[in-house]
């Protein structure tokens, strides 16, 4: 892991100003930012670990915990909100028993709400494992979660 981190840091010429993109690349490589990964970034870049930790927790794009096998994002942009996204969020929480930003104990599902995805014509929108599902409602969400393997 340390080697990979070092390689990514070198790819940016060891430039401290690329801390955010470096962390994005490391997260892409390992799925999340582990403690070891952050420590390696700090060492390779010569930025104090307190600053690396600060940046890692400041930006929403970073996850310090591993994600579940299925990744469900619900758009909470304004257009989706006025079209009832909050009811869908309630439905997902009820079905998966996890709240926004959480991963189920069996590491099967991660659920997060996201800012606008910019596909407002299709709101409310769910992105499940990278695939867009538009004009969602409660019934369609239930069906989608069942299709992903959720036993209800």
């Amino acid at each position: 892991m340390e080697e990979k981190v070092s390689e990514i840091v070198q790819g940016y010429g060891g430039d401290k100003s690329y801390l955010v993109p470096i962390m994005q690349d490391v997260q892409k490589e390992f799925g999340y930012l582990s403690r070891d990964a952050l420590t390696a970034i700090s060492a390779n870049l010569g930025v104090p670990i307190s600053r690396v930790y600060e940046v890692a927790t400041f930006y929403k794009a970073f996850s310090l915990k591993p994600k579940g096998r299925h990744h469900i994002s619900l758009c909470m942009g304004t257009a989706c909100h006025v079209r009832g996204a909050e009811l869908i969020s309630g439905n997902i929480t009820d079905m998966l028993k996890i709240k926004d930003g959480e991963t189920s104990a069996d590491m099967e599902y991660s659920f997060e709400t996201v800012g606008c995805l910019g596909a407002c014509a299709l709101g409310p929108i769910i992105v499940a494992d990278g695939e867009y599902h538009g004009e969602m409602n409660i019934a369609k969400t239930t069906k989608l979660l069942k299709k992903l393997g959720k036993k209800v």
């Binding site: 955010v20 993109p21 962390m23 994005q24 940046v55 400041f58 930006y59 929403k60 794009a61 970073f62």
Partner: peptide, 8 residues
């Protein structure tokens, strides 16, 4: 090009 980290 610098990618943001997701902060309004």
């Amino acid at each position: 090009v610098n990618r943001g980290g997701g902060a309004f």
